[in-house]
Design a binder for these strands. Structure first.
Length: 346
DNA sequence: TCTGGGGTCCTAGGACCC
DNA sequence: TCTGGGGTCCTAGGACCC
């Protein structure tokens, strides 16, 4: 299940006068500033505006578009309503819901007529949340995910072992979920352009080129035979991070260090509330014009103490040469494996 | 066009050990 | 005198996704 133009749709719901207009959500809503498009409404997409495009580019493509700031809390609330609707969907037998982001979820369910069930789910989501979604039906997660793309907007589409090669065989590899521009180019350099060529490629050759795990995985993508189980086990984050791009580059090393330390403190404060000790702190700095370095430092032991976090952050910071202008600073906390709570413990 | 913010997983190279 | 082979751990960077 993948919600259609999700972020734009939520904004249009609370501002109905925007319906039918080109709407672009991204950054703080000012398209002359540094920032990118989170989601564009279908009307805005007609002007060539796409997710991840710089807001300044979007403004040039459609100066009359409505630009709105990102409101993460509103989207999270809407997302939760949708997920709850799916979890409580009346069905004989279990419906396993694996949330895969604000606007999508995998559903494991058995049905005589999957398309009919998908239509019922889509109708219920619309009725309960006023949001349209598209549903891909597949015999595994990979095929269902790709099918959801063909289902858009407001549709249902089935992709299984039966029609995989007929449909996907001639497609360029970049259409596969997990293959981006870089990997597609690298594949092309060894003569693999299409999905069926990837499916028929030599696994040894792929392993040599892409590594022992990635190589064979890529071939399985070509076959449409990958994805793993759908699970509704609670998600346990491995890390938590903050980052910020400045409107104007920073040049004062003291200002940069102060900003990083403040971020680390904020992060430690949040983690203290959930009781997840920090194992390692990684500092990220993006220098002008646009190149990024990271340096990390392990804590002596997993900790949430301000002094320990501060010390590790300073140790990581020490490894940077802060001589060029900085456009972004970031801090990531890597977390200790959560201690399982014994049954019966309050 | 001038490139956000929040994540995950994999790889390669170096250090270190036996 | 000039150097094996296997294993693990750590780190930085790359690639991808939403």
């Amino acid at each position: 299940m993948d919600l259609d133009e999700f972020i734009a749709a939520v904004e249009i719901l609370r501002r109905p006068e925007l319906r039918g207009l080109p709407v672009v959500v991204g950054g703080d809503g000012d398209p002359t500033k540094r920032g990118v498009v989170s989601t564009a409404s279908y009307e805005a997409r007609a002007f060539g505006i796409r997710s991840a495009m710089p807001l300044r580019t979007a403004l040039k493509r459609c100066p009359e578009a409505v630009f709105l700031a990102v409101d993460a809390e509103a989207y999270l609330a809407a997302s939760r309503e949708v997920m709850q609707t799916l979890r409580t969907f009346p069905h004989p037998g279990r419906v396993v819901v694996e949330v895969a982001g604000w606007d999508e979820a995998f559903l494991a369910v058995e049905a005589e007529d999957p398309e009919a069930l998908a239509r019922e789910m889509q109708a219920r989501v619309l009725e309960r949340t006023r949001l349209w979604c598209s549903i891909g039906v597949g015999d595994n997660k990979l095929r269902a995910k790709i099918a959801s793309g063909y289902a858009k907007p407001r549709g249902v589409f089935r992709l299984t072992r039966e029609n995989w090669f007929e449909l996907m065989g001639p497609m360029p590899t970049v259409e596969l979920w997990g293959v981006g521009r870089k990997t597609a180019d690298k594949l092309e350099s060894i003569g693999i352009r299409t999905v069926e060529e990837l499916a028929g490629a030599d696994e040894e050759a792929l392993a040599r080129r892409f590594g022992p795990s990635t190589g064979p995985w890529l071939r399985s993508l070509g076959l449409g035979e990958h994805g793993g189980r759908v699970t509704d086990e609670p998600y346990v984050p491995r890390g938590q991070s903050r980052e910020h791009t400045f409107q104007r580059n920073l040049t004062d090393p003291d200002e940069i260090r102060a900003g990083v330390l403040e971020m680390a403190e904020t992060l430690a404060g949040e983690l203290r509330r959930v009781g997840r000790p920090i194992v390692r702190v990684v500092v990220k700095i993006r220098f002008a014009p646009f190149f990024t370095q990271t340096h990390g430092a392990k804590l002596a032991e997993p900790s949430l103490e301000g002094a320990a976090v501060r010390e590790a952050t300073l140790r990581a910071l020490d490894r940077f040469d802060l001589v060029r202008p900085v456009r972004l600073i970031g801090v990531r906390a890597e977390l200790a494996d959560p201690v399982p709570v014994p049954r019966g413990t309050p």
